[in-house]
């Protein structure tokens, strides 16, 4: 089981879950760019969250997912879950 979740992991799962908007460079500096600006609406993030849960064997709180409006925030939420899961 992976114990850290990185930007690369997120980008890979975003692409699988929802593709990428034309004109958006996911390889650019996107850590603090709002998902909405990156072209991902709530359903795309729901699908992304579901895939992260399946792959990493964690459960993400709905509110935490909704509140994470940037890649950095989502990565932090996932890593917090991963560390509490491994500590448990």
């Amino acid at each position: 089981m992976a114990t850290t979740f990185t930007l690369e992991d997120l980008k890979r799962i975003l692409l699988e879950a929802a593709g990428a908007d034309e004109g958006v460079d996911l390889d650019g500096d996107i850590l603090d760019t709002e998902f909405e600006v990156l072209g991902y609406e709530s359903l795309a993030l729901l699908e992304t969250g579901g895939r992260i849960e399946r792959e990493y064997g964690i459960s993400l709180d709905d509110d935490a997912l909704t509140d994470a409006t940037t890649p950095r925030a989502l990565i932090d939420v996932v890593n917090a879950q991963l560390s509490s899961a491994s500590a448990a």
Partner: peptide, 8 residues
């Protein structure tokens, strides 16, 4: 079609 539309 753009990749954004394919998974959906």
């Amino acid at each position: 079609l753009p990749s954004r539309l394919l998974p959906q």
